[in-house]
């Protein structure tokens, strides 16, 4: 599955979350997303755009249900370590 390639700034999001509230004088700033990853607990579900074998393919953690998953965060592309 691929997705349209646009110029907007795209990002992953924790699944099930609504859009952030529009900022305004009476709008409370949305609370920080809580850290929910804990050992022994369910991994936070997410969906994100991704690059995969030559294409742009959205990916969700749920795509790998029933499998072991190694999820690796790193500081950035073209970094040295």
């Amino acid at each position: 599955m691929s997705e349209p390639v646009g110029c907007g700034r795209v990002s992953g999001a924790v699944s099930g979350e609504g859009p952030p509230p529009a900022p305004g004088p009476d709008t409370e700033r949305k609370k920080e997303v809580l850290v929910t990853a804990r050992v022994g607990q369910k991994a936070p579900e997410f969906a994100a755009p991704s690059y995969y074998r030559g294409g742009f393919t959205p990916v969700k953690l749920a795509d790998f249900a029933g499998k072991w998953v190694l999820l690796c965060f790193y500081p950035g592309d073209f970094t040295f370590v």
Binding site: S11, G12, L71
Partner: peptide, 21 residues
Amino acid sequence: GGVPFHMASDQAGNIGRAYGV
């Protein structure tokens, strides 16, 4: 052959926040 797995993008840091990184 290059990277064989999904390289996901999280430009707003939402996934990173949920995982505490």
